[in-house]
Design a binder for these strands. Structure first.
Lengths: 351, 351
DNA sequence: AGGTACTGTGGGAGCGCTCCCACAGGTGAT
DNA sequence: ATCACCTGTGGGAGCGCTCCCACAGTACCT
């Protein structure tokens, strides 16, 4: 505990001015040392650092925020109710990446849920008050007004998962197209010929791209795409069940299924089992996400791994760059603003 | 979007002073209106409110924090790595309660993980900088130095789950003793006679109290307590498996098990099944927490429900009272500072 | 010697609030 | 009429920083 500075016990905390007096220098100099400016002589720096340590000085963030007009905090906004947030491994993996990357800096992370209307109104206030220097948007729908609000307020933001082919915000996404291709090519290589797919909600750009990948790899392999083998799900387990039942009805003889998410694959597995289909003997199954449930499924699920933790880290990198680069948002070309990370197929017993 | 105030677009935000000028009043008066002081005439209040709306004024939190020496934010500190946080439904339920209660106020919630040493150091800095008005401590061990640090810094805090019988911090806990009693009494009423128990980590006070409840109800029913029927677990699924195996070794004829948590009950169930014991026919099983996994187990698990969401709400109430009550901590008697919420047995097919 | 160009430093001004004292004007008791 | 005491209001001071201008000192030219 001693390291925390016994001197800060109770009462008033030391100020910059007091540190300056103790070190025998001016306020400006202490400020420069605290902020790591190079324009300070070594001797002075040491004297100041000693005074800081002796007094247990800790900068007052409110004063700094007021004077410098920055908050040293960023928000991760999750436009989902908390329940979903915790149910989906996607979010917690992302949070882990974000947290680890951020702990390299002095920045603080504020987690904000904006599921209900009331929460949304609070968020709008919060952003209008500029209580954060930047915002991480975690899974916004294409028609969400949040990005516009952020642009209007000129708050730097990064989005996870593009909303469309021409995303205007800086974004980090995984390569959904190639990921889907690798899954389908794997099934083809295993000799499967009638491959169905259960899609995510098609308003989600990434879900679309996965279907595109499915189509592309079949076509490239010389197969004609049978539209009856494509059934829409909604990323939920229940949706996976319904879609699988529909697939079995349409094409009872199918021998493989590519599900657009692990959770939907879990739903599909139940229906396949109830229908007496063995996995992978009768029907091979591949998921997407490589979340924890893929490993724990019976049999363990082959799945396309998205590097979600790295995506979180990349988002922080983009956001910090944007904040550093003068406040303005994505106005200097979309070059390095759209990061797409590769996926990788993880083969397990289900295929 | 119009409601967000088109006037705040870009550039500078309006200040108190500008609102005052527009409303034709002084700065002090605007401040009083903003902060809901009653000492303002109705006519003036309306004029100010109109000016606020027209200019799209939003108070600058940094300036307010600096002048008033408060931050309008509280932190929820989780001394666990993020992984565990998300794995345990306990935390997310608590977060839900905290969030809902807090959304009644202007306070902001900051979620802080303090699992690693580095995270701990950052937290110490954060607290020393007084970046929050109060702290919610979510599951601290008895020997954690955090409470002392908070006391030293004179930061109001509330703890979830007492650390010992004479907890010094304001706390919110569930009635672990009675909860355990209700579980065991239920098993006795169902005609079970050889009831084992799998405990949580006994450094955790609540885990101890559950064992106390187990002992107490057996004794009150005229049974002698067989120490061989008490095996220590550690709140994990794996620990539950190990403990169950040990119980079966020691007392193969046991006909019921009370597990100190649902997760451990899940582990125990696996071992029981592998050992060919039917649930509840051969062995009745009862858990603690009534978390989501209790409902989804096969068979669904009878469990002692803790009102975790309400606990979260109660923590906020205590903390806000403490913050309002002049800054000093728990120094005016422990009367209303220790809240204990009742538990309730939820009967399902496992018993 | 004078000029130019650094580097390092001190300290004034100002960020946008809250707090509080001062004071005007009204009301009612004496 | 005088005093006491409200209510409502204005505005100075100050919170603890950062920013930036000014300037001393040194170094290196011409």
């Amino acid at each position: 505990m001693a390291a925390y500075g016994a001197r800060s016990r109770g009462g008033r905390r030391p100020t910059l001015e007091e540190v300056a007096a103790r070190a025998g220098v001016g306020r400006g100099t202490v400020s420069r040392v605290i902020n790591g400016s190079p324009r300070v002589s070594d001797a002075t720096r040491e004297a100041v650092e000693a005074a800081v340590a002796e007094l247990g000085y800790v900068p007052n963030t409110a004063a700094r925020a007021l004077a410098a007009n920055r908050t040293d905090a960023i928000a991760m906004v999750v436009p989902e109710p908390e329940t979903r947030f915790f149910a989906e491994p996607y979010f917690s993996d992302m949070l882990r990446g974000v947290g680890s990357q951020l702990s390299e800096t002095e920045m603080q992370l504020v987690l904000i849920f904006a599921g209900s209307d009331r929460e949304r109104r609070r968020l709008a206030q919060y952003l209008a008050a500029h209580r954060v220097d930047g915002v991480l948007l975690v899974s916004v729908h294409a028609d969400d007004p949040l990005p516009d609000l952020l642009a209007q307020l000129e708050i730097p933001a990064v989005i996870s998962g593009r909303r469309s082919a021409e995303e205007t915000l800086p974004s980090v996404d995984s390569d959904n197209y190639s990921g889907a291709r690798s899954a389908v090519e794997h099934l083809l290589a295993r000799g499967r010929s009638t491959i169905g797919t259960i899609t995510g909600r098609l308003e989600v750009y990434g879900a679309q791209r996965r279907v595109d990948g499915y189509r592309g790899s079949l076509r490239d392999a010389g197969h004609e795409v049978d539209e009856d083998l494509i059934v829409a799900g909604d990323f939920t387990e229940e949706g996976g069940r319904r879609a699988m039942a529909e697939l079995l009805r349409r094409r009872p003889g199918l021998d493989a299924v590519f599900a657009g998410s692990d959770v939907m694959a879990a739903g599909a597995r139940q229906v396949l089992r109830e229908a007496g289909r063995r996995i992978p003997d009768d029907v091979a199954l591949v998921g997407f996400d490589d979340s924890a449930i893929a490993r724990h499924m019976d049999p363990p699920l082959t799945s396309v791994r998205q590097p979600i933790e790295e995506m979180g880290r990349a988002m922080i990198d983009l956001l910090l760059a944007e904040i550093a680069d003068g406040r303005p948002a994505a106005s200097r070309g979309l070059d390095r603003q759209q990061v797409v990370l590769p996926t990788r197929l993880v083969e397990r017993a289900s295929s």
